[in-house]
Computed example of a mutant assay.
Amino acid sequence: MSRVAVVLPGGRFGPHAPLLMYAADAAEARGATPHHVTWDPPYDPAALPLERAERWVAEQVPAGDLLIGKSLGSLGAGVAAARGLPAVWLTPLLTIAPAATALRRASAPVLLVGGTADPVWDGALAREITPHVLEVEGADHGMYVPGRLARSAEILGRVATAVEDFLDDVVWPA
């Protein structure tokens, strides 16, 4: 069975940043071919209207089986909802009304991942949208936590495991 996992980056880093790389690797290990989308140039979510982002994502994204997005990539949530695609949204823009509205329209299961020190994360809203939430105490928008880098690397591992469990238990159960 051929699957496609479309990877939508955040505004600052490309689709191969660690959070996205591990999420795409998890999908690839389950038979999906990653399709990496890039923003050129990097964009600020406040300057990119939702309709334009959704239209751009819809044009760039081939038929897929899963969307994986980081931050700005969560502006593709309307495309996921319209196409009935499951999605993994890493640090989605929950405090930006158009993005939150698009995420609420999800018509397939979604995993939301964020940290309590991220100004665009809203844990209560995330739990309203989906039962599939990984919220990390003290993690910022990059999913870094204070202290030694090894602690943030542990968080990266937790995110990777949450994505694997979501894919195995919800999206593509055996």
Rank of each mutant, 00 (worst) to 15 (best):
G123Y: 05
Y144E: 13
A81T: 04
A97L: 12
L167A: 13
G10W: 04
G115C: 06
P131H: 09
V79W: 02
L85C: 09
H16I: 02
M21G: 02
R52D: 11
V170T: 15
V79L: 13
W121D: 12
D40L: 09
R12L: 14
V79P: 07
E59F: 09
R148D: 15
P42R: 13
G138D: 01
R105N: 12
W121A: 03
D25Y: 03
Y144R: 13
I129T: 04
D122K: 09
M1I: 12
G115Y: 06
L67P: 10
A87F: 14
L19Y: 00
L167F: 12
R3A: 04
L94R: 11
A46K: 15
L75C: 10
V133Y: 01
E154G: 05
L149K: 09
P173Y: 02
T38M: 11
V57K: 02
A106W: 01
E137W: 06
G76N: 07
V4P: 01
G115L: 06
L125Q: 13
E164H: 10
V57E: 05
E128A: 04
G31S: 04
V120M: 14
Y43V: 09
A80S: 13
P173Q: 07
H16V: 08
P173H: 03
V171G: 08
A100D: 02
V7S: 08
A139F: 03
A24P: 13
T116A: 06
P18W: 15
L67K: 07
L93H: 03
L103Y: 14
V133R: 05
H36T: 03
T161Y: 05
R151D: 07
W89V: 07
G84C: 05
H132G: 07
L93Y: 11
A153D: 11
E59A: 15
A46D: 15
E54C: 01
V57T: 11
E51L: 05
G73W: 10
I96K: 02
A126N: 00
K70H: 05
L90H: 06
M21E: 14
H35Y: 10
P45M: 10
V57D: 02
L93Q: 03
Y22I: 08
S71V: 14
